[in-house]
Amino acid sequence: MVRNNSLATVLTHVLLIIGIGIMCLPIWLTFVGSTVTRAEIVHPPLPLWPGDQFLTNYREALFGGRQAPVLQMLWNSAIMAFGIAVGKIAISLLSAFAIVYFRFPGRQLVFWTIFMTLMLPVEVRIVPTYEIAVNLKLLNTYAGLILPLIASATATFLFRQFFMTVPSELAEAARIDGAGPMRFFKDILLPLSRTNIAALFVILFIYGWNQYLWPLLITTDQDMNTIVMGIKRMIPSADDYGNWPVTMATAILAILPPALVVIFMQRLFVKGLIESEK
């Protein structure tokens, strides 16, 4: 696709810019909405340029706390997303390690069972999961937010595929060097999986951050709400007037952490997705 055709160059650029515009417009509008007054935002046409209420609205969103404790909810979301990402990675690394490097009866069966759980996302099993969570007294706890989402067939599968590309001589060399299985895992496999772990962390962090349905069920206490739920609750219903600029500010705040994770890990992320390290 290396073609030195100026028309094609212009055309691709135009298309890309249009695409980016379509992607970014809603975020821009949200941002603009978060910097104007309540009167301006409900008065058509929609404002397209930022107003002067930036500080007021964000201060209100973060510390106003009339409708929802935004700081607390951001914190809750961060813990949940981090917990889910780290937990999923830890569990899938270990299960992939077991499946690839150990010969035990029913190994294939275990693998396919894990693989089949891909067909059972949270939404499908939500009622029994909820009941178990309640019985285990996990309502309104971080554990309740994190644990039911912590197993990941996708990540297990990805790590399995990666481990299978690691030359078996490496495991044998380590064995001759006297490294036991866990030592091999820690000293050799983990460092080699670094980029894959980073890539998965980004994906899973965003997955965890965006959870809506499960936190909605498992948390009844406002102090345990996540930010995504918080935004939903700030959207005025029926005859309520609502504070749209503050809601918009909250939305922008909710976008920031996953965006930061992507920005700071993007180098590793891209490497992890494309690299096939020896």
Binding site: P167, E169, A174, R175, I176, K278
Partner: peptide
């Protein structure tokens, strides 16, 4: 176990640990 056989092996693919320096590769065992 291989580690207790008092042997050392050189593999066709060398099987060097890619993330370790030459020193660490030799020192690992």
């Amino acid at each position: 176990e291989p580690k207790d056989r008092d042997i050392a092996m050189v593999f066709q693919t060398y099987a060097l640990y890619p993330h370790m320096s030459v020193f660490d590769n030799m020192a690992y065992g």
